[in-house]
Amino acid sequence: MATDPIAGDDAALVLFSGGQDSATCLAWALDRFARVETLGFDYGQRHRIELTCRAGLRTGMAGLDAAWGRRLGEDHTLGLDALGAISDTALTREAEIGFEASGLPNTFVPGRNLVFLTFAAALAYRRGIRHIVAGMCETDYSGYPDCRDDTVKALQVALNLGMERRFVLHTPLMWIDKAQTWRLAQSLGGVRLTDLIVEDSHTCYLGERGQRHDWGYGCGECPACRLRAEGFAKFAATP
C-alpha cells in the first residue's frame, strides 16, 4: 500500500459506506480534490449489502464526469469484526429496532464513528493524505452522540496530537437535512447523480433491496428508510 504521488492538500480520503450520505460526500470530494480515495468498513453490520453497492456507485460517479473519473483513486475496505462482536445493537443483531432506556435508538453502535475516523486517519497517514471526508450530520440524525460536530472537532484535535499530523476532518452534511443533501447532490452532479444515488446506493437498516421506491431501495419502514423517503419527498416537491 504505497503512498500515492498526488497527496497532501490535493488528496482526500472519503468514508464511503455505499449509502446516500456517503455517496454525496464522495461527489463533494471529487468536486474539490485532485485525488480521492475511498474507505469502507465491514463490521458485521446487518445491512452489509451496502458494501456490495460501493463498486457500482464508484463506477457510476467516474462515468458522470471525466474529471471525476481521473480523480477517483484507490478503494479500501477494512474488516472490523471486533466492533460488531462487542456491539449488542439492532444494526449488528437480528433485533427489533426501537429505543433504549437512555433515549438513544438501539441502532446506535457505541464508538463506531470514533473507530471509523481513527482507522481512516491511520490509513490517511500511510497514504500521505491530509483531508478526511465523512457524512456525519447533526441536523436530522437519530441522536447519535458520535455524529455531533463537537465530537468530530474533538476527535480531530486528538488525532492530530496522537499522530503528529494536521488532518482536516470535513463533514459537508453536518448542518443540512436530507432534502438539502439531495439538493447538494443535484448541484454537484445534476439529475444523473441523483438518479445514480436512488438506483445504486443503500441506506435501509434491514438490508432490504427488494422494493424500489421513488427514493431508492429499502424496507420503507425502518428509521433510515423513513428519513430518506421524507427528505426525497421534500426535495422533489421543491422547484
Rank of each mutant, 00 (worst) to 15 (best):
I97W: 06
T89P: 00
D149E: 10
E96I: 12
I97C: 07
T77V: 14
D214G: 11
D42F: 04
R228F: 01
G216N: 09
G84A: 04
L169F: 09
T52N: 12
A67P: 02
S87H: 01
D140M: 01
L206P: 00
L173R: 14
T3D: 05
T3R: 15
A55S: 13
E208F: 08
T181L: 12
E50M: 09
L123R: 14
A124Q: 10
T139K: 15
H131D: 11
R192E: 07
I197G: 04
A134Q: 12
C25H: 06
A121G: 08
D88R: 15
L83G: 00
T203H: 07
I49S: 05
A185T: 07
Y205N: 02
A120N: 07
D214L: 09
G73W: 03
K234Q: 13
G63R: 13
G128P: 15
H131M: 06
I6R: 12
H47P: 02
G19C: 08
D177Q: 05
T77M: 12
F116N: 03
C204F: 08
T38L: 07
C53S: 14
R35F: 09
S187P: 02
D195H: 13
R71V: 10
R226D: 06
C219S: 00
Q180W: 00
A101Y: 06
T24G: 01
T52D: 15
T52Y: 05
Q211Y: 09
A12T: 03
L173T: 14
A237F: 01
F232I: 00
V198M: 10
E221Q: 04
Q20C: 09
Y205D: 02
T3P: 04
L169C: 07
G103I: 11
K153L: 12
F33C: 02
F33A: 07
G40C: 10
T107C: 10
G60M: 08
R166H: 15
V115P: 01
T77Q: 14
R48T: 12
L188M: 13
A66Y: 00
R93A: 14
T38H: 00
H131Y: 12
T118S: 13
A236R: 09
G56H: 13
A90M: 13
I49F: 02
L206T: 14
T118V: 11
L83Q: 01
R209Q: 12
I6M: 08
H47V: 10
R165K: 15
I49V: 11
G44Q: 10
G73M: 05
D65S: 05
T118W: 09
T194E: 05
D88W: 07
G73Q: 04
D200F: 08
D4T: 12
R192L: 08
C225L: 02
L64S: 05
G207C: 11
M163Q: 15
A66K: 08
L161W: 09
A154Y: 08
E138Y: 08
G19V: 07
A23Q: 06
G216F: 07
L161Q: 11
R192P: 00
A158R: 08
I6H: 06
A179T: 02
A233L: 04
G111I: 09
L188D: 05
